[in-house]
Amino acid sequence: MAGLRGEAAIVGFVELSPERKPTRPPMFTIEQYARLAKAALDDAGLDGSAIDGLVTHGIAESDMFAPATLSEYLGIAINFGETVDLGGATAAGMVWRAAAAVELGLCEAVLVMVPGAYNMPVSKHRPPKEFGYFGASSNTYGSPQAEFEIPYGNLGQNAPYAQIARRYAAEYGYDARAVAKIAADQRTNACATPDAVFYGQPITIDDVLASPMIADPLHRLEIVMPCMGGAGVIVANESVARRGRNRPVWIKGFGEHVSFKTPTYAENLLRSPISKAADRAFEMAGLRRSDMDMASIYDCYTITVLMSIEDAGFCEKGKGMEFVASHDLTYRGDFPLNTAGGQLSFGQAGMAGGMHHVCDGTRQIMGRAGAAQVPQCDRAFVSGNGGIMSEQVALVLQGD
């Protein structure tokens, strides 16, 4: 099938320690890109001259020409520039696009950076526009959501994900303890990861179920907590990879599928786009689900993880709760999942939350996860999820 040959690798990465309250000085988006780029280059053992490609999400200080603006600011001339906008699936989508550009010979090494929510400088004379919170919906005049959804209260993230969970319960039943176990096991992983927001703060299944109900059946400890941070990787060809200091993490397969924006228009709330994305990624890589040594699955909510485990093919549809209840999801378990804590316990640094999962898989394959290291970890499945289970990307990563 058409796709990647597995000849592009992640050779370095950076993931800033997430912060609930800012301790770093205010920084413009372009400054964040520069900081992340320098850290990723240092991690890879490369200098800026090795870079000839940039993939970005966007720049707060420039509505247009993001790759050119960054090229100018970083002092790096590029042969490939791309802006990706897939919500929480952006990071995984950026990675496969960078790998494709490398394999096509367009460039040798690509910076793939995602600044997170951050303490940014604010002008007293030109204050930023205040945005209402509409989640995946748009309140801009003329958008379908502004006319047909928002006026009726179907907006944000919590309620739509709760709708998915309630629909799941009606179709397959709902074991609240099994779903809460996802959050508890991931917190165990965070407690072995010093950079995690919730490092040193273990929780139990009972703690999850005792936390306030936010949107029935989702409790507070089943929902991500936004914080500040940033993350990124460098994707390079074999020549660059071999002169770097890290074990190369080859991008063997990918899949991407987008079928709607908000769940109002979903054909089936219980069949998410990760199904087609994962099938394509595994077929492209020539690997099976059972070949994976760990999985890093986008976890804005526990129901997202449960649905993704099923739809990505790790268990039968409707059997996810049995799967979770019968497997150890910690880094020392038989199905290591989100081994740095995931966004639920490591922290969701805005758009960089999706890059957390790329870094999680990369860190494990490079053998750099410290106390949370999965033994003999050579292969990882990574997912990205944007909107309300609507924009989804799958990656299959492999070490030498």
Rank of each mutant, 00 (worst) to 15 (best):
Leu106Tyr: 15
Val14Ile: 15
Pro18Tyr: 04
Ser345Ala: 15
Tyr141Trp: 12
Asp43His: 15
Ala266Phe: 07
Val224Asn: 02
Ile76His: 05
Asp311Met: 01
Ile203Leu: 08
Gly353Val: 03
Arg187Thr: 10
Ala9Leu: 07
Arg24Ala: 12
Phe335Ser: 09
Val396Trp: 09
Phe134Tyr: 07
Glu61Gly: 05
Phe346Gln: 08
Gly386Ile: 07
Arg35Phe: 13
Gly318Lys: 11
Gln373Ser: 14
Leu287Val: 01
Ala34Gln: 11
Cys377Met: 14
Asp311Gln: 01
Leu337Ala: 09
Ala266Ile: 08
Leu209Asn: 10
Phe134Lys: 02
Tyr152Trp: 12
Arg24His: 13
Ile223Cys: 01
Thr188Gly: 06
Pro212Asp: 05
Glu316Gln: 04
Leu269Tyr: 03
Glu322Met: 03
Leu111Tyr: 04
Ala369Leu: 07
Met284Gly: 01
Glu267Asn: 05
Leu287His: 01
His257Val: 01
Ala278Thr: 00
Asn154Phe: 05
Glu222Ile: 01
Phe148Met: 08
Gly142Asp: 15
Ser49His: 14
Gly200Lys: 08
Gln364Pro: 14
Gln145Arg: 06
Gln376Gly: 14
Glu103Trp: 13
Asn139Gln: 11
Phe260Arg: 03
Val114Asn: 04
Gly12Lys: 13
Ser275Lys: 02
Thr193Cys: 12
Gly333Ala: 10
Ala92Trp: 03
Ile251Thr: 08
Ala215Glu: 00
Gly313Asn: 00
Thr56Val: 15
Gly255Lys: 02
Gly45Lys: 14
Ala34Thr: 12
Leu218Tyr: 02
Cys191Asn: 10
